[in-house]
Computed example of a mutant assay.
Amino acid sequence: MDSITQANFENLESKDKDVQYEAYNKILKATEKEVDWAYEVWDKLKEELTHSDNHKRSRAAQFLSSLAKSDHEKRILKDFPALWKVTKDEKFVTARHSLQSIWKVGLAGQKQKEVVINHLIERFTTCMDEKNYTLVRFDIIQCLRNLYDQEKDESLKQKALDLIEKEEDSKYRKKYATLWKKA
């Protein structure tokens, strides 16, 4: 790992929230493409998925989702249940940030994509008892759109449109459909 990336991970522990936030953004930016240091931080991030600090749980989930494309050993397939659990975190903001980034796992390969899509579809159809379930559903449709935008897989679009049709409330059906207007 280069010294700049290492410093960014160290700065996540800073007492200064601005320094933490800048480091967080730099790490996310770095992980937009494949990196060669994924396994240097993988185990620590996996541990932080269950940390008592919800900020660490959220960051760990977002970073692991982004690092999946650099995971040539396919560890994410084994670690996905722990990552998915954070999308149902007791702190809604943590759950939401984790859910909003989970689609990136689908960029790592066909098997990873299938796992993500299956979990998203299952969650959409079973989340009505969750607090803020309409936001959860919106995020799921957005995840499918993000993946579609990267892969141009028409089956993703169809899956999303099928889920939208399952929404009984026309107001939310219309809101979810706006995500697919120009697809």
Rank of each mutant, 00 (worst) to 15 (best):
R59G: 07
A60V: 12
F63I: 11
L64V: 09
L64P: 10
A68N: 06
S70R: 03
H72P: 14
H72K: 15
E73R: 10
E73F: 10
K74G: 11
L77M: 07
L77D: 03
P81C: 08
A82S: 13
V86R: 05
D89M: 00
E90I: 13
K91V: 14
V93N: 15
S98H: 05
S101L: 13
W103Y: 15
K104V: 12
K104L: 12
K104N: 09
G106C: 02
A108M: 01
G109Q: 01
Q112V: 01
E114S: 12
E114H: 06
V116P: 03
I117S: 01
E122V: 07
T126L: 05
C127F: 01
C127T: 09
M128R: 14
D129Q: 12
E130I: 02
T134I: 11
V136I: 11
R137M: 06
R137W: 07
R137C: 04
R137I: 04
D139W: 09
C143M: 09
C143K: 07
R145M: 08
L147M: 07
Y148I: 04
S155P: 05
K159M: 14
A160T: 03
L161C: 01
L163Q: 01
L163M: 04
L163K: 00
I164V: 05
E167C: 04
E167I: 04
